[in-house]
Design a protein around this nucleic acid. Structure first.
Lengths: 195, 195
DNA sequence: GCCATTCTGTACCGATTGGTACAGAATGGC
DNA sequence: GCCATTCTGTACCAATCGGTACAGAATGGC
């Protein structure tokens, strides 16, 4: 077995994710990708198949990370505080640059819904996983009495998700920390999840 | 003065708006535009300057129409019902196709924020006009006693807008009528704007 | 050191991008 | 009917798109 790969695949994948996340699918040209990933054209096609396949891989990775970022706190936080933790961790984090990129799944759904339905639906399905996670948490919490709300867990999850989507647009429109903080606060107050 | 234009400029503009609205800026190619608008290449550049200028004009038109769609009801509806009227008129309208296109301003902010800051900020400024309209309405209503809420008008307008943005993503993700209806209902309930 | 294998870098591909040049048709004033 | 003007349609432009072909360098096993 001669000559192993001279680049770190997962590092290259991360670089691609970063670009796609910031600029979207169409606006990210191959030369830009290659430069950011630090690999040659042929290595690119050998390792990732095509731009589209790479994009799917990035989307999958982004979705997985996002979900993990929430789910990781399930054991240490009461379910009513999960939305706040999610919002604050992603919107009030140090890097304004990253916040200004919004959510890659939201960006992709909007960019591609009338252009590449398959990609758009894939991104949407990843968003649904997050909503389902919230719904499951709220269900558990309500049956165990840890959360009291006159709304059904499903409705609550839907509302959290709608506000989340709205926040992702807001964060792309204006990533200022105080601005987002104020919206997060009043949104959670509205939801009765002040904790 | 010989030979007047042989096409209806505003009709062509509307056709362009439709395409840009559905597919976004980059994904809308010039040949597609020309065909939809029913004009020749040279007429296009003579009348609209460039693809980018045309896009701005469409964005302006879309923003104007959206704002008018809300403001037109200011005199006939109590201010607390303006958000519901806005949501229902745009999300529960007969054409699923149009609903699935979401809001052109939201779409543009997300598509272009890291690609063409000027266009993105222009779209964002048009969204701000809508938020300002709500803020003004709520202010008037609160001083006249027509609206009672423990929230400030500005905060209320911000929340309505955040939910609105979330709904525009939802509508692109899943334009189904019942789905959107349920989110609209619970959102307005949440805001205390059931009326 | 040799060779098979698999990497990297680059030249190249046809298709498409937004935009321009220009020929020729059509239409106003006279 | 004539002519200046302004339209329309198309040929063309360089640049870029995503993707492929292939030469040559590098590295494993022996």
């Amino acid at each position: 077995m001669p000559r192993s790969a001279q680049f770190d695949r997962s590092q290259a994948l991360n670089a691609a994710l970063k670009l796609f996340w910031a600029r979207g699918y169409s606006a990210t040209a191959l030369p830009d990708l290659l430069q950011a990933m630090g690999i040659a054209r042929s290595s690119f096609y050998a390792s990732f198949g095509s731009k589209r396949e790479l994009f799917i891989e990035c989307l999958e990775l982004f979705g997985e990370r996002t979900l993990q970022g929430i789910a990781a706190r399930e054991d240490s936080l009461p379910p009513g505080q999960l939305p706040r933790a999610f919002f604050e961790n992603t919107l009030l984090e140090p890097s304004r640059q990253r916040v200004a990129q919004g959510c890659m799944m939201v960006n992709s759904v909007l960019e591609l819904s009338e252009v590449d339905a398959e990609l758009s639906e894939f991104a949407a399905s990843r968003l649904d996983l997050i909503e389902s996670f919230f719904a499951r948490c709220f269900t558990d919490a309500q049956t165990s009495g840890a959360l009291d709300s006159q709304r059904s867990p499903k409705e609550l999850a839907q509302l959290v998700m709608t506000i989340n989507l709205g926040l992702r647009v807001q964060s792309r429109k204006n990533p200022s920390r105080e601005y987002l903080q104020s919206i997060v606060d009043s949104s959670l107050d509205l939801l009765g999840l002040t904790a």
